[in-house]
Design a protein around this nucleic acid. Sequence first.
DNA 1: GTTGAGCGTT
Length: 257
Amino acid sequence: MSHFGKSGPPDISDTYSLLILNVTFRTTAEDLFPLFDRYGKVVDIFIPRDRRTGDSRGFAFVRYKYAEEAQRAVDRLDGRVVDGREITVQFAKYGPHAERIDKGRIVESFPRTRGRLRSRSPRRRYSDDYYRDRDYRRSRSRSRDRYERDRYRGRERDYYRQNRSRSVSPDYDRGHGRGRNDDKQRRTRSQSIESASPPRRSPSPRSSLSPCRTHSPGGVSPDRHSRYERSPTPRSVSPRGHPTDSRSPSPSYSDDE
DNA sequence: GTTGAGCGTT
């Protein structure tokens, strides 16, 4: 929902889509709007985001009303450094529904199979299988996967270490006869391990597994009223003010503007 | 908190 007020694609029939590549992951539509609006009438800006994390995927789509304006934006903003990174502005080749687009204009509504290769069923666009499949991440970073793998491996190794330390049952040591001294050393080592590891871990790791996208259950949504304005003034509650005073208009601590 | 080829949503 990174467009101007409407829900979904407004009207791509009379618009010309530009693909903005190489944008930073922190760049938002609000940041791109003033840049592209300088060279023409920007109809809509859309930045694909990850549905799990909500982060930008690193590219954006800007739709102009006229092709000449879009061309001018490509000529002007292509290679422009935005947020410390050189972006790439070019006409979109494919539409939101995989239409063939020439110069940002939809040439063909859909890749007609000529009534021959209609074996596949492109009906399912987004489903659990989409994210369950490992080929869905063609647009996302591979390094991120490596990071997740490393982190998972680290956790697995930690688990293995703990499990192994617990596997050393005292019965086994005492079974070998030479036990007292080793028992003390073992206990010392066990204490050492316990000291190294956090004293108390999450008893229920399932808490992390929150497939529900209901982030911020507290109901606090600071930047939700304005999308294209840099006015993040969430005057939620006074930092040290109590709700009993409701909102005392004391100018002691003005908002950070 | 991280990353970097590519083509998109209520």
